[in-house]
Each structure stands twice: as structure tokens, then as C-alpha cells.
Design a protein around this nucleic acid. Structure first.
Lengths: 341, 341
DNA sequence: TATAGAAATGACAGCGCTGGTCATTTATTA
DNA sequence: TAATAAATGACCAGCGCTGTCATTTCTATA
């Protein structure tokens, strides 16, 4: 019923300690000893007792994921990817939804880490972009990995997984340009999220490259929400000079813009093209379906967790390429930006 | 830095054992002793070492939540509610996304419980409705709480939180009837989910009460997905005798039906009224917004966890009303079923 | 072939807590 | 006030594992 390390040891004909060494990837275990132990572990289906390991070693085998994201699909995907990696490495995942705007968010994170004795933390925006949090975590010596917007790996970002929002936004904008649009508006996400800034920059770069000077009136501040899209689109379509295309910072905003267009009896894509970003499930379910950029969130999360384990596991082979992963969301063209004719 | 039970004991002027008694809600602790200890715990901010507790007592302070639900909003809400309760009781939540249709799902659940040494499990559909799982869990003596469709508490369902889908569906159907509709169709969810059957029954009961015999052609089998709604609505609107209203088993199906109506150039709600169920965020974001029934998932989850703790905690006061919570989702009328004139 | 030095392995204590047993103190009741 | 019950403490073992350090075994070199 309950297999302990003792059982494995006697089955393999070695000491408990040696089994422990194998379990923890410690050096100084001869190959054949290692194999013997592994065989015993497999034969007996040994599952180490996490509580005992924690207690004896004073470290833990769980990592945390803090989120405050109204986008449920994003969170679910992240969880999925993180859990995949956790299962592979025998770790557990602790999730912690919270309010990023809480004044004592830093303390809350610290408390979480210390109370649950976490081995590490995966941070997504907006937490991954809060310098106070990174500083505090470094100070107490907790490993963490950040998923952030960026395109250029650098030593300073050694514990980051980069998502190249700039390039993806550039591509989307380019797609609109190729469709013949020149008056392209941009609906921003939250200012606190650097992804919003990166996407804006990509949009601007694409325009500039075509010799188009971005029109400030076409750049509407907002937040990552449906409502923001509704409002933003309304504002844009009330301009005397209206845009012929809108690039929304994410699918939710785009869906809001779509909703708004419907209210104003604007035909999509004939009178107005709309593109989103993220490829969340509902981007396929709007009418018409949204052109967007696919962000492989599950994979991103897996990589983030792998990176974390590489840092957090004391004896893991550091040989593995420690290069930073960079993901470039890819363009998905759907009906919301079909050729206007 | 690290406060142990010893520190609390000396601070409170009692023995370690007494602190332990307080921590574990054991009887035979005088009120003022209890208060003294609690004061010390608060003063020192004592956080018991979970690993040590687990190890020594051979029980754990985490519960599991298994999900396989394409509906991210539902999952997020459940997590939120479960976590609220967990924090309150000092438990942790382990999430476990999986495939409900996997052939060895029962074994997988058993493994999860045993490997992670869970104190209990919260099951939502479809897991909560799989008799094999309930049996297996009972056999190995693991506490669990199920969230299921139902209206009548009974001893047999003592570990269930009930959601009265029947009554809510009755109300929605009634709303459509009051709007003057008589040809009301029903788009079913997955057969495996009893919620689908309950909602269908509520729909049928409402019709029958009005003296309308449900038309079998108006009842379309399907699944809880957008695509199913697209297909179902298409099928219905190709009938020679078309319905004037569609009640979809959930918001996603309803959104699909909406999409389909758009494709067929059917005006909503003028030519066709559509109602959903669940009040997921996007039910407000479709065009037009969906009439639906609000399911308080966060609260439901909280109650489920509370119920679980009541059973799982050995010394918790069983005095608390052990009556089964029954939730009746409430009708939310929006534009998708506005008066057709 | 002997031997220093390195590598592999094992013996043992102890992580922080709980559960059990029993002795002792304190409160309650007749 | 004695008798009984309730509350508390003292003490120990032990949960299953890891850390430390002593010991054994191997490897390389002369």
C-alpha cells in the first residue's frame, strides 16, 4: 500500500541514503547503483512523501502562480502549461488569484512565498512587470520566472520568457496595410502592461515603415476589456476623419469594438476592418470571426516553468541550453479583416 | 524569522501539547487557555509547518479540484470560491485539469488523491455525476463533495451542493412564454451532464403547464459548445415550422445560435428570441446581449468547500447546520429576448 | 603491488509536529 | 469537604526523509 524509501532501499540492496541520493540527483552515485535503485523505484512504484521531503530538507516542491487577469482563457492556459511541467518534475502548483492593484501586493506575495514555502514563482503581467516584486523576491532569495513582452534576450532578463509582441503587432498592422488600409487606428490595453506598449510600438513601426505618420487621434488609450473596446471604437467612429481599420490590443477589446460597430450599424469588414490579438477562443466566435495573433500560452507557460526548475533545482543539469525562449505570436487572418471591396 | 510551536507555547505560558490541542480543535481546552494560545499565535504570527503536520498526523491540508471544462469562466469562478474557503480554513487547493472521457479516469483520480494525499475532493460535472468515481472514492475513504443538478435535498445526497437547474430553466421558459412565444425550441448540452437533462425537464414542464405539448423536433441534442449552438440553430431554422424562440442550455450554445442566426440573416430578437444559461461574462458581450440565468459559481464553490471541510475536519463542530445548500439560478432578462413586436 | 587520494556509500541524528500514555493540577458537583 | 470530572503537562516515539560526517571501495600513480 504505502511504499517508503526503506522498501526501495532493501529491494535494491542499498542504503536509504543512496536511494535518497538518486531521488535528488545528487552526484556521486555509480551508474549501476543508480540503475538498480531506479529499477526498484519502478518496480515498487515508489512515490516519495512530499511532506517528509519538505520537512527534512526545508525546501518545498511546489511553485506558485499569481494571477489577476480578467481573461479566464489566458489563466486556464497558463495553468495547463505550468501543470504539465510540474507533473513532469514532480512539483505541485499553487495558484493565487489576487488583486494586482492592492497597495500591499508586494507583502502579499512575500507572505505567500514564505507561508507556503514555495520553491519558486511564475509571474505573468502585470506582476512580472512590477519592479518592486522582483526586487523583493530577489532580496529574500526566491527563484522566479517572468513572462514579459520583449524581443531581445539579455543577461538582465535571464529569468524571463519573452513574448515578442512588437513583431507580432508589426505583422498584424502590415496585414492591414496590405489590405489597402492607410487609416488604421489602435486601441490600447492597460498602460501598466508593457504588452500594450510593445504592441503599440509594433503598430507604429509598421506604419512608419510604409511612410505613414501615425495619427495621434487614432491611438486610443484604454484597458484590456470588452468595455474599453466598445468605448474606444465609438470614439474613433465619431471622429470626422474615421479610420478604415482598427487594431485592438487584444481580442476582448476587438470584440468590444465589434459590438460597438454593430450598435452604430457599421458593417465589418466592409466599412471597418478589426483585428485583435491573442487568439482566445472567442475570437473565433464573434461575428465576423476576428483576425488576430496566436499566442501559444500553454507552451509559453511550460517553458517558463522549465526555466524556473532549471534555476530552482539544486542539482539539475545546468548543461541544458539556458538560452531565453522568445515567442513570436503568429498572424491568423479571419473574416474581420477580409479584403474590403 | 521562523516561529515554531515551542515559541508559541512559551509565549502563552502553556505546554507545547496544549498549543497543539488548540491548533487541532481538540476538546478539553478551557476557554481562557484557548484565548491565551490564540493570542500568542496572533502575536507571533505563528504559521504551523504544514509539512511537519502532514508528516506527523498523516493527513494533509489540501483539497483537490478536478476539472475538464471547456468553459474557462466557470473554472476560474470555481477556483476563486474554493480558494476563498481554503484560505479561511488554512487549506491549500490543488487543481487538476484532465480528460473526463479518458478510460482510466477513475484510476487517475485515485492516484491523484493518494499521491498528493488529499484531504478531500470537490467534484463538478461531469465528474460529480460519474458513479464509478463516487464509489471508488468512498471505497478508499476519501471525503468528497459534489456539485450537481438537483432540487431536492436527500440523505443520499448528503455530500452534495445542489443547483436547481430545473426551476431556473422553468423560469426562463416561462419568460419566453410570457413574451408570447409558443414555438420554443431547446438546444441541449452534453447528455452526460445531468444539468442538460434538468434544464430540458424544466423547459418541458413550463410548456406543459401552459398546455403546450413539447414538439420533439424543437428539442435538439448537442453539447455545451459554441459549435453545437451554431449547428443546432441552423437545424431548427431549416425546419418548415420554425421556432420563434430558442432556449439554449448554456450561454456558449446560445452564442453559437446567435452566430448562426447572423449567418442566416435572422434578426434577434425580432425574428427569433434566444436565451442562454449561466451568465458567463460573454453573455453580456454578444450582440444582442443574452437573456440568461445567473449561476453564482463563486458562492457555490465556497459552499462546496465548506461542506467538505465540515466532513473532512475531524474535530470541527458538527453543530453547524448540515443542511444541503440549494442554489436557484436567477433569471436575467437582456436584449436577446426583448418583446417581439 | 602498495598506497595516497578521490569517489561512493552508509550510520545516525533530527526536521517540527502529532498521538498516545500517564501523572498532576484545577474546576465542578454532591 | 470529599469525591469526581475536566484540563493540562511531561514525556516519548515516530512520521519519511535529508544533512553531516565517518567509513568503505575504487582509481590512479609510483
Amino acid at each position: 500500500m504505502k511504499v517508503t524509501i526503506n522498501d526501495v532501499a532493501s529491494h535494491a540492496g542499498v542504503s536509504i541514503k543512496t536511494v535518497s541520493r538518486v531521488m535528488n540527483n545528487e552526484p556521486s552515485v555509480r551508474k549501476d547503483t543508480y540503475d538498480k535503485v531506479m529499477a526498484a523505484i519502478t518496480a515498487l512504484q515508489y512515490q516519495p512523501n512530499a511532506a517528509a521531503r519538505n520537512l527534512a530538507s526545508n525546501r518545498s516542491f511546489s511553485i506558485g502562480y499569481i494571477y489577476d487577469n480578467p481573461n479566464a482563457y489566458y489563466v486556464i492556459d497558463m495553468q495547463r502549461g505550468l501543470l504539465d511541467a510540474c507533473r513532469k518534475h514532480g512539483y505541485e502548483l499553487l495558484i493565487h488569484p489576487t488583486n494586482a492593484k492592492s497597495p500591499d501586493i508586494v507583502q502579499e506575495v512575500i507572505d505567500l512565498v514564505q507561508q507556503s514555502r514555495l520553491a519558486g514563482l511564475v509571474l505573468t503581467p502585470p506582476f512580472s512587470e512590477m519592479p518592486h516584486i522582483a526586487e523583493a523576491l530577489e532580496k529574500i532569495g526566491v527563484h522566479f520566472v517572468r513572462i514579459i513582452s520583449g524581443s531581445t534576450p539579455s543577461p538582465k532578463l535571464s529569468n524571463c520568457v519573452l513574448v515578442d509582441d512588437f513583431t507580432a503587432a508589426f505583422k498584424i498592422t502590415n496585414h492591414l496595410l496590405e489590405l489597402g488600409h492607410t487609416d488604421i487606428a489602435f486601441l490600447c490595453g492597460d498602460e501598466e502592461h508593457s504588452s500594450s506598449g510593445e504592441r503599440l510600438a509594433g503598430y507604429q513601426a509598421a506604419l512608419t515603415k510604409r511612410g505613414i505618420t501615425p495619427n495621434p487621434k487614432f491611438i486610443v488609450p484604454g484597458s484590456y476589456s470588452f468595455e474599453s473596446g466598445v468605448k474606444g471604437a465609438k470614439q474613433l467612429m465619431n471622429l470626422s476623419k474615421k479610420p478604415s481599420a482598427i487594431f485592438a490590443c487584444n481580442d476582448e477589446i476587438a470584440a468590444g469594438a465589434l459590438f460597438s460597430a454593430r450598435l452604430m450599424n457599421i458593417a465589418i469588414p466592409q466599412q471597418l476592418a478589426i483585428a485583435g490579438f491573442e487568439n482566445s477562443p472567442f475570437s473565433r466566435q464573434t461575428w465576423p470571426p476576428l483576425t488576430t495573433a496566436h499566442q501559444p500560452n500553454v507552451t509559453i507557460a511550460q517553458q517558463a516553468a522549465e526555466l524556473l526548475f532549471r534555476h530552482a533545482k539544486p542539482n539539475a543539469s545546468k548543461m541544458l541550453s539556458d538560452k531565453q525562449p522568445v515567442f513570436i505570436p503568429e498572424l491568423l487572418v479571419r473574416e474581420s479583416t477580409a479584403v474590403s471591396e
